[in-house]
Simulated scan of single mutants.
Amino acid sequence: MLIYNAEIHTMGSLGVVKDGWIDIQNGKIRNIGSGYLPYDDKDAIDAQGGMLLPGFIDAHNHLGIIEDGLDFEGDDCNESTDPFTPQMRAIDGINPFDRCFEEARMRGITAAASSPGSANACGGEIAAVKTYGRRIDDMLIRNCGIKFALGENPKNVYNGREEAPITRMAITALIREGLYKARRYAHDMDSYYSDSENYDPPEYDIKCEALMPLLDHKMKAFFHCHRADDICTAMRIAKEFSLDAVIIHGTEGHKIADIIAEEKIPVICGPVICDRCKPEMRGLELKNASVLHENGVKIAICTDHTVIPIQYLPLSAQAAVKGGLDFDEALKTLTIAPAEILGIDDTTGSLSVGKDADIQLYRRGENPLDLMSEPVLVMVSGEVCRREV
């Protein structure tokens, strides 16, 4: 398929391609260029000067793992029977037939990082998935990290049961204990593999197995935290165990933006368009993303769906623009920045040869972040999911 006569915002090294065309074959981008081509492809689409972008990516949400319109029956987000559950995998709880996948696609959101919740000090493995498909295994881009949570959520869940953890100290101690166990487990495995005659393998431990990719830098550690002190705790743990860390929410990041920048840790900001619904969100400010960016922190915007419905991801970025973020940077927070943070930028997040054809097109002059805007064309891995041109 060929799309031509488009203003292509590649979000990559090609920048903005005026009067551009993009050639798609077998779900991949085969070529990008500008100017006249002999358009003999009967399926060629005239973009009529519209803006063509990579599909948006929601870097943190609970899409499909908290199902729309259901209560307990469709909530598989928190295994809150144990405060430390790295062995849980979001992919095992996601229902791809949840109608919110379609609502995401219709708004140009082609990928999402669906995460376990924040009831536990460690909730499990995050799955970055495409928003189109019927079997989650086929939609999976990669399992990209382990979810940890600091602050009020674990405190509230386990305080009500009179079980640990009920303090920030205990939450951090649980995380530290789990990571130290995994480190020792990995050492014992290495000893066995290098000298099986003199060393026995450790007894199988599914929690340690789940954490080993973090220690090997094959996955990232995603820390749910709102308050500035919790963000600093996350950075402390990351430094102690040499983890590739990401801050989720980072509500008070604007208070310590320079410190976060020094540590070179990215922040997934959001939800942005919500109230200050609990004490640790008292520091919520619309300027947060802008201040973090101005200090050199890599940022993405998220909805935390179902907190904010996923189709309002672009509006969330527009709200960040109102808070001072540059418009072009806001587009990056929904495309290449979340792809890089999630470690999926080799396949999506920008438009370049060889990447998946995750594409959206808007009418000429239309702002893709505006509440009233909707794409006239959406493709996920080359599959046309919406077409009005």
Rank of each mutant, 00 (worst) to 15 (best):
T10A: 13
G12S: 04
S13T: 08
S13V: 05
S13E: 14
L14W: 00
L14K: 06
V16L: 05
V16P: 01
K18L: 07
K18C: 06
D19Q: 03
G20S: 10
W21R: 04
I22W: 13
I22P: 04
D23G: 07
I24Q: 05
I24E: 04
I24S: 09
Q25G: 07
N26E: 13
G27E: 01
G27N: 02
K28R: 15
I32H: 07
G33A: 04
S34V: 00
G35L: 10
Y36K: 07
Y36E: 06
Y39E: 11
Y39L: 12
K42N: 10
K42A: 13
D46S: 04
A47D: 07
G50R: 05
G50C: 10
M51P: 03
L52N: 03
L53M: 12
L53F: 10
P54N: 07
F56T: 02
H60V: 11
H60N: 12
L63V: 06
I66K: 13
E67S: 11
D68T: 15
L70Y: 05
L70C: 01
D75M: 13
D75K: 09
D76E: 11
D76G: 15
D76R: 12
D76T: 09
N78V: 08
N78Q: 12
N78T: 05
S80I: 10
T81N: 11
P83F: 05
F84C: 15
T85K: 13
P86C: 08
M88G: 15
A90L: 03
A90D: 07
I91L: 14
D92L: 11
G93Q: 07
G93V: 01
G93M: 09
I94E: 08
P96H: 01
D98S: 11
D98E: 09
R99G: 01
F101K: 00
F101C: 01
E102D: 03
M106I: 09
R107P: 02
G108A: 06
A111E: 08
A111V: 09
A112W: 02
A113T: 07
S114T: 15
S114H: 03
S115N: 14
P116I: 08
G117M: 13
G117Q: 12
S118E: 01
S118F: 03
S118P: 03
S118V: 08
A119Y: 06
A119H: 13
E125C: 15
I126L: 07
I126C: 08
I126F: 02
A127V: 06
A128F: 02
V129T: 01
K130H: 14
K130S: 10
T131F: 00
T131G: 00
Y132T: 01
Y132C: 06
R134W: 02
R135N: 12
I136G: 15
D137G: 13
D138E: 15
D138A: 15
R142H: 12
N143K: 14
N143I: 10
C144G: 02
I146Y: 02
A149S: 15
L150Y: 08
L150I: 02
L150K: 02
P154V: 08
P154R: 10
P154H: 08
K155Q: 00
K155C: 00
N156W: 15
V157Q: 05
